[in-house]
Amino acid sequence: MAEAEKKIRYAMVVDLRKCVGCNACTVSCKIENQVPEGNYRTWVKEIEKGTYPEVTRYRLPRLCNHCDNAPCLAACPVKATYRADDGTILIDYDHCIGCKYCMAACPYDARFVNPVRKTAEKCTFCYHRVQAGLLPACVTTCVGGARVFGDLNDAESLVAKLVANNPVQVLKPEMNTEPMVYYIGAERDIMGARYTNLEKGEN
Rank of each mutant, 00 (worst) to 15 (best):
E3R: 08
A4T: 14
K6H: 09
K6C: 02
I8F: 06
I8R: 10
R9S: 09
A11S: 14
V14W: 00
L16Q: 03
R17N: 15
R17V: 02
K18F: 01
C25D: 05
S28M: 04
S28C: 05
E32P: 00
N33Y: 01
E37I: 15
G38E: 11
N39C: 07
Y40Q: 00
R41I: 10
T42C: 05
T42W: 01
V44H: 05
E46T: 14
E46R: 10
K49G: 14
T51Y: 12
T51F: 09
T51P: 00
Y52G: 05
P53K: 12
P53S: 11
T56F: 02
R59W: 09
L60T: 04
R62D: 07
R62E: 05
R62K: 08
R62T: 03
L63E: 09
H66K: 06
N69I: 06
P71I: 08
L73N: 06
A74L: 07
A75Y: 04
C76E: 06
K79I: 00
A80V: 01
Y82D: 02
A84D: 15
I91E: 05
I91T: 14
D92N: 15
Y93L: 12
Y93F: 12
D94S: 14
I97A: 03
G98F: 01
K100E: 02
C102F: 06
M103C: 11
A104W: 10
Y108F: 15
Y108W: 04
Y108Q: 01
D109I: 03
R111S: 08
F112N: 05
R117Q: 07
K118F: 13
A120S: 15
F125I: 06
F125N: 08
H128G: 11
H128T: 13
H128P: 03
V130E: 04
V130P: 00
V130D: 04
L135Q: 15
P136M: 14
P136C: 12
T140P: 01
T141K: 00
T141E: 10
C142K: 02
G144K: 07
A146G: 05
A146H: 06
G150C: 13
L152F: 08
L152I: 13
A155H: 07
E156V: 00
V159T: 12
V159R: 10
K161C: 09
K161P: 07
K161L: 10
V163I: 15
V163L: 05
A164F: 02
N165R: 02
N165C: 00
N166A: 11
N166T: 05
P167H: 07
P167A: 05
P167W: 04
V168F: 06
V168E: 01
K172H: 12
E174C: 01
M175P: 01
M175V: 04
E178T: 05
M180R: 11
Y182A: 11
I184Q: 05
E187W: 12
R188F: 10
D189G: 06
I190G: 03
M191C: 08
G192Q: 11
G192D: 13
A193T: 08
A193L: 13
R194T: 09
E202V: 15
